[in-house]
Amino acid sequence: MELALVTPAIWWLLLCTKVFALVDCVRRKPYDFEMAGTLPKNVWLIILPLAIFVDIIWRNPIGILPLAGTVAALVYLAQTRGSGY
């Protein structure tokens, strides 16, 4: 019974993380990505919505594709927000 409550909570948390990363990406200037030394903004604007789409379709936070999307969102956040640009 407890697992039935934990899995949706984890799914929502990870989905919110991906949406936060996408909103942050949309708001940043392309120059910020160059300064942070990460992928260009256009690439992130493809990866992050795909991650959200896969998450909504699978609705399972432990699947391989949703996990890959979560890793992508966390990498984005670490590289751009963590860089200070």
Rank of each mutant, 00 (worst) to 15 (best):
E2S: 12
L3N: 09
A4D: 14
A4Q: 14
T7H: 06
P8A: 09
A9N: 01
A9V: 04
I10T: 12
W11H: 12
W12R: 06
L14V: 05
L14R: 04
L14K: 09
L15S: 06
L15P: 00
C16T: 07
C16H: 06
C16A: 15
T17M: 05
K18V: 02
K18A: 06
K18M: 13
V19P: 00
F20Y: 14
V23R: 10
V23K: 08
V23H: 07
V23P: 01
V23E: 08
D24R: 14
C25W: 08
R27T: 15
R28K: 13
K29S: 10
P30Y: 15
Y31Q: 12
Y31K: 07
Y31N: 07
D32Q: 11
E34C: 04
M35C: 14
A36S: 12
T38M: 05
L39G: 09
N42Q: 05
N42R: 09
V43Y: 09
W44V: 04
I46R: 10
I46Q: 05
P49D: 13
P49I: 13
L50Y: 07
V54Y: 05
D55W: 03
I56N: 01
W58H: 11
R59I: 01
I64C: 00
I64W: 08
L65T: 15
P66T: 15
L67I: 11
L67Q: 06
A68F: 05
A68D: 02
T70I: 03
A72W: 12
A73S: 14
A73M: 04
L74C: 15
L74M: 15
V75D: 02
L77N: 01
A78C: 03
A78D: 12
A78M: 08
Q79T: 13
Q79L: 11
G82C: 06
G82D: 09
S83E: 06
G84R: 11
Y85Q: 03
